[in-house]
Design a protein around this nucleic acid. Structure first.
Lengths: 133, 133
DNA sequence: CTGTATCCGGAGTGATACTG
DNA sequence: CAGTATCACTCCGGATACAG
């Protein structure tokens, strides 16, 4: 797992690095962000919200977030199965900073659009209005 | 380059994802963080501050940050060469969020140390006091 | 509906040697 | 001092098929 990668004693990590290891996965920030907005999401809802993620990666990412105590997984023993994901208290602490990152990102995207529309193609950074607003 | 990876039109990116692409590199946050503390750093100083980074990765990361307009590179045409790196205005806007991340990271590290000292070995997340304090 | 299992290509990273 | 060049390797992440 990305976040449990072996690190030798020689490696000196600072807290910034540590934090990035926990939330730096490819989809982690987005999942936390969506979870904060919706409070509770089921597996299928997350899958639809993140159309570019495969089931494997979604499952794997959710496991890592759960192991790291950033989200809470609630299973209902029903048929068909039902699982709900929500933010833990520790996870909620990360929201303000993700929000800051989100504002910064939007600003940069808009700035790029103004100064160099061609760059849009390179980065193809479209805001997913359906979720991010 | 990590940040210029091709993205299909189908890929819908939200601003959070976009922002992470720009600062999510393995060493980027730490470099920005150190630059904020020291205001100006030379190549060699950065190299010594980040003992686990190779010259290749340091150069590459600095180039990406420069291309993204997050840092400023100032060359002095002297012998021996001298190059100074500092934060750009856009880069400075990211500091509050990195600071938040840093606080959160320290808190989590301390919490882990208390509840499960064994985990320290797994994550080997030592705060590099020399720089982060 | 909510996942697992398996295979596999390629980006990202590191080690080492070399340069102006 | 401040980088570049090259090679080798790990392992992240995608595609696909299958399962309870």
């Amino acid at each position: 797992m990305k976040n449990d990668q072996k690190v030798t004693e020689a490696t000196q990590l600072c807290a910034v690095d540590y934090a990035f290891k926990r939330i730096g996965g490819k989809y982690k920030a987005r999942i936390l962000w969506y979870l904060d907005m919706k409070r509770v999401l089921r597996y299928g809802e997350l899958s639809r919200t993140l159309p570019d993620i495969t089931t494997k990666m979604l499952t794997q990412t959710l496991r890592e977030l759960e192991d790291d105590k950033l989200i809470i997984r609630k299973m209902y023993h029903e048929v068909p199965p039902k699982v709900e994901y929500s933010l833990s208290e520790t996870g909620k602490e990360l929201i303000p900073f993700i929000a800051h990152l989100h504002r910064w990102g939007k600003k940069q995207i808009e700035k790029e659009a103004l100064t160099n529309p061609a760059k849009q193609d390179e980065r193809t950074a479209q805001v997913c209005n359906s979720v991010c607003g």
